[in-house]
Every structure is written in structure tokens, then in C-alpha cells.
């Protein structure tokens, strides 16, 4: 087994507020290989903040600490802005929720993709343009030439998100963080976008961190799932053995989904317990590591 792409131990994100310190992420640790790792939790569980902390995007007054945060064995914890910029985009990238807001409304799509690519790969304009066209074709955009000259508002949500994926994968990063990439899309195009994302990530042998509140979706799509609650990981599961979940929160999430084969009159409300906030993760702690161990 090779080293993990990304290794995180005891990650904490702290915000100083008037009422004292607030920890949005409280001691998260995991390893990421060339796999699809799902991170599931409700809003405020710290899942998005974990993604942003890895990219060094937590801005003051937020503070990031960790025992370890390594990208292929090299620490990326609190790097200088300059060094972090060389990692962002080129080695770790991110796709956000809503392409309506995450694409610059007054730049053409072509310019935005070319900018992402040339920033790290350099090279001539013509070559970058060709790469952008290839990337658009790779995310199954018809008429890439026309789309290159178009502006984001002329695109549908599904197209926008595919463009976003093309843009973020153009510099060939090793890790992609997808933060609720399909939540803002019409149900009809979600699967299409997910399939494109899946194929590209697999073909390139990348690591994917897939952040979502939708346990069902993550279970279908990922290899492993981390369940987060109140800033901590409460359980780590293989997607295939999801039904063996032992933590009551995970069980509650699973039971809150309506099932066609066993309909119930009322879906149960998930009762939360304070003990979940501070209890350790269930199962052996090594489950947060790569399969095969370190």
C-alpha cells in the first residue's frame, strides 16, 4: 500500500466570538487515498469547513490547527499564502454548490478555464485554449467552441456545474473536494453530473472528497463514508456496509429515508443526544485510516 494522498489528524477550526471560542471542526482525522470518500452531516456539522480548512481558505478570525495535515507526506498546515497558492488549484481543487454563484458572471467561460489552467501549467495561450476545449468536451459539453465565448448566465445549472468541474480539473489536481456539487441542480441532471464527475476522477486516479448531506447519494457514489456530527467524526463506514452502522446518529439518518419496500406512515424524527457531541467515534479508530492501515 502506498502512502495516502492526504492525511489529517486532529484538525480543529476555531472562531473567536464575543461569547468565547467556537469550534466549528473539533479534532477531525482521516486518510484519503485514490478513492471516493464521502463526508456526510447536517448543516453546521463542520463538513464544509473541513474542506475549506484543507485548502487553507479559512480566513481570519478563523484559526486552523492540527496534529498533522499532509499532502503526500509533505505538511500543508498553515503554509504561507504564497506556498499555499501553488497547491490550490494545481494539486487540490474544489467544486462548490451552485454554479450560478461560483462562476464569475462577467468573464467568459473560456477565459475562466484558461485562467485556471495557465496559472499552474503556464504555456502559450493557444495551447491553454486547446486544453480548455478538451476539458469541456470531457465533461460532455456540446459545441465547446460556442460555450467558450459564452457567459455563465447563459448556461443551465447542469451545464454550469460541468463547466465548473472542467475548470477545476484542467490543471490536473490530485485531490478534488466536491462540496454539495449537486444540491443546487435539478434532480433530472444530478445523475448525469455525478457520472461525469465519477468517470473523470476514476480515469485520473484522483482522490475525491465528496461532501453532502444526502447519505443515500453518498452511499451509492462513494467507497467510504465519514459521518460528521457537531464538528466531529462519529462514524466511518464502508459504503457497502452502511446498513451495519452502529452509531445511533447514522442509524437515525438511515431510518429517516423513506423506503419503497417497507413504507411507514410517519418517518421518525431523529432525536439528538448531547452525548454524541463528545463521545468518541464508534468502531476501531483505525477505521479512519486507509484500508490496509499505516
Amino acid at each position: 500500500m502506498t502512502d495516502p494522498l492526504l492525511s489529517v489528524r486532529n484538525l480543529r477550526v476555531t472562531f473567536a466570538t464575543r461569547q468565547g471560542e467556537f469550534q466549528a471542526v473539533r479534532g477531525v482525522g482521516f486518510d484519503l487515498g485514490r478513492e471516493r470518500l464521502g463526508v456526510v452531516g447536517e448543516s453546521g456539522s463542520g463538513k464544509s469547513m473541513t474542506g475549506r480548512a484543507i485548502l487553507g481558505l479559512v480566513r481570519p478570525p478563523g484559526r486552523v490547527t492540527a496534529d498533522r495535515m499532509e499532502l503526500e507526506g509533505q505538511s500543508i498546515l498553515n503554509l504561507s499564502e504564497r506556498k499555499m497558492r501553488r497547491i490550490r488549484g494545481s494539486r487540490i481543487s474544489m467544486v462548490m454548490q451552485d454554479p450560478k454563484f461560483s462562476l464569475n458572471p462577467v468573464m467568459t467561460i473560456g477565459d475562466q478555464i484558461i485562467e485556471a489552467y495557465r496559472l499552474h501549467a503556464g504555456g502559450a495561450k493557444g495551447q491553454a485554449r486547446q486544453k480548455a476545449l478538451d476539458m469541456l468536451a470531457a465533461v460532455q459539453i456540446r459545441e465547446p467552441e460556442r460555450v467558450m465565448a459564452a457567459y455563465p448566465h447563459e448556461m443551465s445549472g447542469g451545464m454550469g456545474q460541468r463547466i465548473m468541474i472542467a475548470m477545476m480539473l484542467a490543471p490536473d489536481p490530485e485531490i478534488l473536494i466536491a462540496d454539495e456539487p449537486t444540491s443546487a441542480l435539478d434532480v433530472s441532471v444530478r445523475t448525469e453530473v455525478l457520472n461525469i464527475l465519477d468517470r473523470l476522477v476514476r480515469d485520473r486516479g484522483m482522490g475525491l472528497i465528496f461532501i453532502s448531506h444526502d447519505l443515500n447519494l453518498v452511499a451509492q457514489f462513494c467507497d467510504r463514508v465519514l459521518i460528521m456530527y457537531a464538528g466531529r467524526i462519529v462514524e466511518t463506514l464502508s459504503a457497502r456496509t452502511l446498513h451495519e452502522a452502529r452509531h445511533p446518529y447514522t442509524q437515525g439518518l438511515l431510518n429517516s429515508l423513506p423506503r419503497l419496500d417497507a413504507p411507514v406512515d410517519r418517518l421518525p424524527v431523529l432525536p439528538r443526544q448531547d452525548s454524541w457531541r463528545d463521545g468518541g467515534p464508534v468502531g476501531e479508530s483505525l477505521e479512519t485510516d486507509l484500508p490496509g492501515g499505516l
Binding site: 485548502l55 481558505l57 497558492r85 501553488r86 497547491i87 490550490r88 488549484g89 494545481s90 481543487s93 474544489m94 462548490m96 461560483s102 462562476l103 464569475n104 485562467e115 485556471a116 496559472l119 499552474h120 465548473m164 475548470m167 477545476m168
Partner: peptide
């Protein structure tokens, strides 16, 4: 944020 993620 997108622009920052790009590494600009």
C-alpha cells in the same frame, strides 16, 4: 472563493 481555489 472559486478564484482563490484556483490558486490566484
Amino acid at each position: 472563493t472559486t478564484a482563490r481555489v484556483k490558486g490566484l
